[in-house]
Amino acid sequence: MNTLNKTGLGEVLTLFPLKIKNLFFSLNEETRQSIREIRLRCNKPIVVVTKSGSSFLAVNSRLTYILSEALPTVTADELSEVVKRACDYSVYSHQEDMKSGFITVKGGSRIGVCASAVFDGDKLVSVRDVSSLNIRIAGEYLGCADEAVKSLFYSRASNVIVAGPPMCGKTTFIRDLVRQLSNGNTGRYYKCVLADERNEIAAVCDGKYSLDVGVNTDVLTGYTKKDAVDIALRTLSPDIVFCDEISEASEARQIINGIMSGSAFVVSAHLNSAEELYLRPVCKLLVDSGVFDYAVFLGTGDSVGKIVRIINLKEKYNEGSRFVRFGNNGNTDGELLRQVN
């Protein structure tokens, strides 16, 4: 089973000026459901990304691949109006996110904000002059993690790295995984904690989860992963902790400590290939620690959200040959942690 339950497009369209909103509503339902990204650029045509790639929003209730001057465009005022609405008319409540280049809106969709940085000395304090927005529509695909649940979590909670290139469905996959494990689909209601730094997995709004993350899941929204893992381990006694998009060594260290404290972890990371698992420093740190069981790779194109490869990291770790293959210098934190053990 792998069905689209709902998308965040409805919430995203409420942010648009009436003129653009009506153009999207004039598209047929099937086309609307297939939209993955909307790109708004100042005085440029509106780019809509679907499974078939990028196309332009046309005035006659359709998407077109032909670039012409007749295509509707977005003005600078309209762009800033979208940002204002996305911030809920409260720039102060999204200021940190804006500085990081994104805003998460109701329904879990994420808006990438391209603007000019404003510095106070060498400190980034704000952004101004928004020039373009990249809106990634959140989708809830129920059942996309079925295979992982069956093969990796039936006997026990495994430590898993979910990997793949951007837009391969890592966040959607993690959302379905936490939902199934929390709902007892393995025969046990795992106590799950979701470290949802960008609020795009559960899309919490007014304390309610907009997207289904299961009945036995606690969500820590807005915390840094380091803080969230710390809080989870100290106060929430989780069976499994879920973290999206690991990118820093400090996060990896906290996760390794967490696993050693007795909780299982499922983390996701941007990777283009299995080889990069041993090349990207943050992933190398996780793998070299020897505490992760599996790396799950998701596909792109027609295989978006589907598992294309599972690597048994423990097996590889025990083989011990990869240190020679990938040139480990023995000085990583993973190596140190292993020595401690």
């Binding site: 911030c87 809920d88 008319y89 409260s90 102060y92 409540s93 007014d206």
Partner: peptide, 11 residues
């Protein structure tokens, strides 16, 4: 509310 929780104005 703004000072304590940075809550958006509509909320």
């Amino acid at each position: 509310y703004i000072g304590f929780s940075k809550m958006p104005i509509t909320q």
